[in-house]
Amino acid sequence: MKYIRIYLFFSFSLTWLMWVIINNFEFPDYLSSILMIASVYIPAITVWVMKIFNKEDEITIVSLEPDVKKNIKWYLIAWIVPVIFTLLGALLYYSIFKNDFDLTFGRLQNEIINKTGQPSDTPITAANIKILSAILINPFINTFLCLGEEMGWRGFLFPNLVKHVSRIKTHILAGVIWGLWHIPLTIVGHNYGLEYFGYPWSGVLTLCIFTIAAGIFLSWITENSSTIWPAALAHSTINSMGKIPYLFLSTANPSNRLFGPAITGLISSLPMVILASVLIIKEKQLKN
């Protein structure tokens, strides 16, 4: 447990320090981006430094060898499942909050107006470009950014924590730790905004529910592929798809982001929670 405590101390303290600096001081956009990229690599850097200075070889780290040919199935699962479950979550949210659904892409038009000063004559085309980019391009580009986190959570924390507690407790603890790591971002409105009941702690709790469920899925593909890259791809796809459900959100109604429509919402995360539950049941059946 010693190395787990070291990992958690440095991953939390250094990342939180950088986020507090980024959120409270004004930097040029390019410098803020560089600092944010550096901050999400702190979990990976912490693991690498511990491995370098650890002479007893007590640390388990998942392989960085992509082995694409052998694991093509898991790369496809890592890419396709987050897309499907983001859309399922949005569908569930809009089936409950029907008045929130809008096919005129008003929010996208407002975004275009803010950038260009005038509305688009082809909002459907602009929406399609965003959707296709989120599915086909961005996940693969941003995989390298998500690798920094995944080297920490799935590459180090899960396989080392499971040595000390049961698998189900490991899933829950690893998911909660991952969610709590995001507290500074949740406080400044990331994922849920600033105006919701119980701010910010209900947002922290909601995110932890999602990170437990998503973490189970990411750990499952990591263990089956024996490499960290599919988890990084899945993580990247989740992030990439995050804004797509908002394309259909009406401007006439205030967004209740704590419930959805993004996959991190209480309602829209339910399909991922169900998937995670199925994976846990399968794990138990295999043990028996």
Rank of each mutant, 00 (worst) to 15 (best):
W74M: 11
S32E: 10
E65Q: 08
T170R: 06
H164I: 11
Q118F: 13
I59N: 05
N253V: 14
Y7M: 08
I129W: 13
E65I: 05
I281W: 15
P254M: 11
D57P: 03
S219E: 09
C146R: 06
N224E: 12
S120I: 08
K55V: 06
L218G: 03
I177T: 04
N71C: 08
I267R: 02
H235K: 00
Y94I: 07
V176Y: 00
V278K: 10
D67L: 08
G155K: 02
I21H: 06
Y3K: 13
A234G: 01
T143G: 03
G152P: 00
L207Q: 03
I96Y: 11
M151Y: 10
E283R: 05
W74R: 00
L108H: 13
V68D: 05
L218V: 04
E58R: 06
L286R: 13
H182M: 01
I72G: 01
Y7A: 14
L194Y: 10
L145R: 08
E111M: 08
L8S: 12
T251R: 09
V62K: 01
L145Y: 15
I212L: 01
K287A: 12
S240C: 07
Q285A: 10
M18A: 14
S33P: 10
T206W: 00
S120K: 03
C146D: 04
Q109V: 10
I22T: 09
I59L: 12
G106K: 07
S63D: 04
K130D: 13
S226G: 03
S133C: 13
M1N: 12
K284W: 06
